[in-house]
Design a protein around this nucleic acid. Structure first.
Lengths: 335, 335
DNA sequence: ATAGGCAATGCAAACGTTTGCATTGCCAAA
DNA sequence: TTTGGCAATGCAAACGTTTGCATTGCCTAT
């Protein structure tokens, strides 16, 4: 049926082991036989069976990628697919395949299955999955894995990749200042998440460095926004720009501002984290702190593969730079 | 190291084949030994090695999923992830794993690799991938595969899943009529694609059925839209609503209309294909023809697995219903 | 001329399963 | 009492590779 190494061997009149050695370049073989073997391989359209291979050498050349199916947030999903593509891409370039699995918080059996039965060589998983049981499971063995997103609790035995939220936040402030805004406000969703706290720190640091008096940090809610903007309109506060921690906040802010006939970017500037594809179609087109999710995936995959292949014991984590994409919503100055 | 079937056998004092039979329930085993074996399996935390298994029984219980990495369109990507999740979900429920690979139009080596070396049992691939070489490759053998999206050329030997564009288009018309609009126009991107032609047909059929005089079908371009809307404003045409073939068209139309201070939905109604997550945050919130991409993935996976398992020779294709989500942009009547 | 070394290859076991066939009892039917 | 059948299990080959060890020549240094 399918042609095996034995068929090649028989056709050439040589031992299977010789064919194997030619394929893997794992011993010196005479030019003559090598060529004959290669030719027959081509003629019979031979392809090595990776199963048999894996069975003997104990490595499947496969990595597991768990995706957070529970996450109905279309926003993060849209981003995530770029990471998936990136991961597959670097994996493939090193000869690895990618096995995906959904993860439900309730049980981790599918992840275990990847490791224990499918024998993947390593795993990439989103930080949302790193709940109690799974953390123990992963860190207790020295099984290679990389987390997408910085874990809440600081642990030295977890290797992760995340965007540099602190730097992104600093850049957002810088962008506003450069455009002539003087009193930015940071709107966050939940101060307790790690990425929000980083953004807060970046915001505070950069404002201090730029020696400006900020309008502070506020937790977003629709009512609060209405109130704040009313105050701005009545000149009761001198806030002149918002940094929004995600696109939905930005849309709502924009809506509230426009409802009051206040001009963006002339009177108020708006910049937001997350470059959701439609952001550029908004009116005005939204300036954003862009996260290169492709790069994140790429980095995660590289980290994982290095850990798998090199058996590096030192666990590394990495921050990926955020980048400002300046559109209309912050263009106060006409340069 | 890892515990194998032999370890179990030795511990119980029985032959490995007996253990295997217990695991697979493939022969009658005395209650007594069966229980002893199951217990030892639990004690030693045994997990079958799927590689060895696959090697002998010739099936990997793995399906390949190819994703179109070349597709930089964030819109379709955002949708696609839901299909991925669905596919993995049904696969898992039947004991299958999912191996993903990117596909570049230039060569199909990575897809071949899945089949020839990784030995997947079947493949799901987006219609964009079905170019010449690959069509031949897939249809020449009787290897199970399902295409996401209806192929351009009608072939009876290709099994595919797509959304019912014709029905979606009819529903869009119906929605507009019900809201009191009288003369809808369909805006498409490229008449030659199969899905556009279906939408055109659905549009024409429903308009005929409803006995209304349509404003026809137009290929979208920014200039043409400006012109058309100018004409509407000058009462030179009685078009009172647009069905847009994708979200970007809809945004541009909305923008052009609003720039002329024409009211949506009062004067002009707008409905669009593709429920891009932000559509509901637009002003006014966009009514859409929603495609259940999760359902599409689910259907594709079910089709594929049935073909793999049942070895059904009859190739089936399926249409998934589209559904209208009525938001603000078509609410002319206040019911 | 002889020993030692190395290049080129063969042999067979191993990876962890499954499965067809053979074997062993035991029980019921004749 | 013999025979036939069936339930319960063992034996060994097979799946397609890789790899340590053994073997065969041949070449070179002594």
């Amino acid at each position: 049926m399918t042609v095996t190494i034995k068929d090649i061997a028989k056709a050439v009149g040589v031992n299977p082991s010789t064919v194997s050695r030619v394929i893997n370049g794992t011993a010196s073989i005479s030019e003559e036989t090598k060529e004959k073997i290669l030719q027959v391989m081509k003629e019979l359209d031979y392809h090595p069976n990776s199963l048999a291979r894996s069975l003997v050498n104990g490595s499947t050349f496969t990595i597991g990628l768990v995706i957070d199916a529970g996450n109905k947030d279309a926003f993060s999903n849209a981003f995530f697919i770029q990471s998936v593509i990136a991961i597959e891409s670097v994996a493939q370039s090193k000869g690895y395949s990618v096995l995906i699995t959904n993860h439900s918080l309730s049980d981790s059996s599918n992840i275990k299955n990847l490791v224990q039965e499918r024998k993947v060589d390593g795993i990439i998983l989103p930080v949302q999955c790193m709940t109690g049981e799974l953390i123990d499971l992963m860190t207790s063995s020295d099984f290679p894995f990389v987390v997408m997103g910085e874990p809440q609790e600081k642990r030295s035995d977890i290797s992760w990749v995340d965007v540099d939220n602190e730097q992104g936040s600093r850049q957002a402030v810088e962008c506003l200042i450069k455009s002539g805004y003087k009193s930015p406000m940071l709107l966050v969703e939940n101060r307790n998440t790690i990425f929000e706290s980083k953004r807060i720190k970046g915001f505070e640091d950069e404002c201090k460095a730029q020696k400006i008096k900020t309008s502070g940090i506020h937790t977003f809610s629709e009512e609060k926004i209405e109130m704040l903007i009313d105050e701005i309109q009545k000149k009761e506060r001198d806030t002149d720009s918002f940094i929004c921690s995600n696109n939905v906040i930005a849309f709502k802010v924009l809506k509230a501002i426009k409802a009051r006939k206040i001009s963006v970017p002339k009177q108020i500037g708006v910049i937001t984290f997350d470059n959701y594809p439609l952001a550029e179609y908004m009116e005005p087109a939204l300036s954003v702190v862009d996260v290169d999710t492709y790069k994140m995936g790429e980095t995660a995959a590289e980290l994982l593969l290095r850990s798998i292949r090199g058996k590096e014991k030192k666990i590394k984590s990495r921050l990926v730079d955020a980048a400002i994409i300046e559109r209309e919503s912050t263009k106060r100055k006409t340069k």
